[in-house]
């Protein structure tokens, strides 16, 4: 069932934005909108006409398409437990990371293309934070690759249980890794505490201010891509809990359940947390980075590559 992860990712992508919204509404005492309301919104946007700025060039028109296409293609790499995704080869996660970077590259350019000072600022922040978060992702992959050869996404998950000799120690590390992956997802999807999608002030935004000038089909595409991106990171986390020993239906249930949990976690963290000061953001990402390096050393220690005496 190589296509299973892709299929399930679509299902989770369909509900994640709705669940986040519902959790946020509930926790502040509002009545929650329907779970698929965000999807209705996207569909409504897709059907609309567009307004393009006079300052823009064709870059602005193709950027949302490239952004969506890269994330869509990225989902094809998502493994299903130890089973590789539709595309899976040695060091495929490098391709995945760079693939997502193409989309970001074009989105940042499209923001500068509008010649708006606000969007330039958003573009700058997005570029800066993505640049900082990239090494964190690679450190996590490197940590998992310490016990997996040849390293590929499927193989990394297959060997995740072997991070240490004792299973509960492995799980301890995996919890750490999931914590960092969760934070990477927050940064990459521009959520709290790095960015607040619901703020009123453009000066304090990152991603939302970048897409101020996008409208209609383009905006719908960007929002759809964001939902898929959630599913991608949710899938990367869920994969740790799947096992080839479980029945297929159990695995599917775990995958979907983790997607829901992932969305609830984001909703809760957004409800009870304040946004960082802009200047704190880079330090926050550096903190994630140092945690990731710590994990790398922990795994080295557990595989007795260096002995703590």
């Amino acid at each position: 069932m190589t296509g299973m992860a892709l299929l399930l990712a679509f299902v989770t992508a369909f509900f994640i934005p709705g669940i986040i919204g519902a959790v946020k509404a509930k926790s502040c005492g509002r009545k929650a909108p329907s779970l698929i309301q965000p999807m209705f919104d996207i569909f409504r946007l897709l059907k609309k006409g567009s307004v393009y700025s006079n300052s823009t060039s064709f870059i602005f028109q193709i950027a949302p398409i490239v952004y969506f296409a890269t994330i869509f293609l990225g989902l094809f790499f998502l493994p299903f437990g130890a089973e590789k995704g539709i595309f899976g080869f040695t060091s495929d996660f490098i391709f995945l990371a760079y693939l997502l970077a193409i989309g970001k590259f074009f989105m940042i350019l499209s923001a500068i293309d509008t010649a708006s000072p606000f969007e330039g600022m958003g573009a700058n922040r997005e570029a800066f934070y993505s640049m900082l978060i990239e090494p964190v992702f690679f450190t996590i992959m490197g940590s998992l690759a310490l016990v997996a050869q040849p390293p590929s996404l499927g193989n990394l998950y297959a060997n995740a249980g072997a991070l240490s000799d004792t299973p509960y120690l492995s799980w301890m590390i995996i919890v750490f890794i999931i914590y960092i992956l969760f934070n990477i997802a927050l940064v990459e999807n521009s959520r709290l505490p790095v960015d607040d999608p619901k703020t009123h002030l453009e000066l304090t935004m990152v991603h939302e201010v970048m897409v101020l000038d996008n409208s209609g089909f383009d905006l719908g595409l960007i929002q759809a891509a964001n939902a898929l991106k959630f599913a991608l990171y949710g899938g990367l986390i869920a994969n740790f809990f799947l096992s080839p020993e479980f029945h297929l239906i159990t695995n599917v249930a775990i995958f979907l359940g983790m997607g829901v949990l992932f969305a609830i976690a984001i909703g809760l963290s957004e409800s009870f947390r304040a946004r960082n000061k802009m200047k704190k953001n880079s330090l926050y990402i550096v903190l994630m980075f140092s945690l990731a390096v710590l994990i790398f050393f922990l795994i080295l220690a557990m595989n007795s590559k260096f002995i703590l005496t």
Binding site: S55, S57, I59, A97, Y98, A101, K104, F105, I108, L109, I112, D113, T114, A115, G120, A123, A127, F128, S130, M131, L132, E134, P135, F137, F138
Partner: peptide, 21 residues
Amino acid sequence: ALIGGLAIFCFVKVFGIVFLG
């Protein structure tokens, strides 16, 4: 990874400021 990220940062700046807007 950092070089890649920084290069992206640099070239969106150059391309954006020189050719776009």
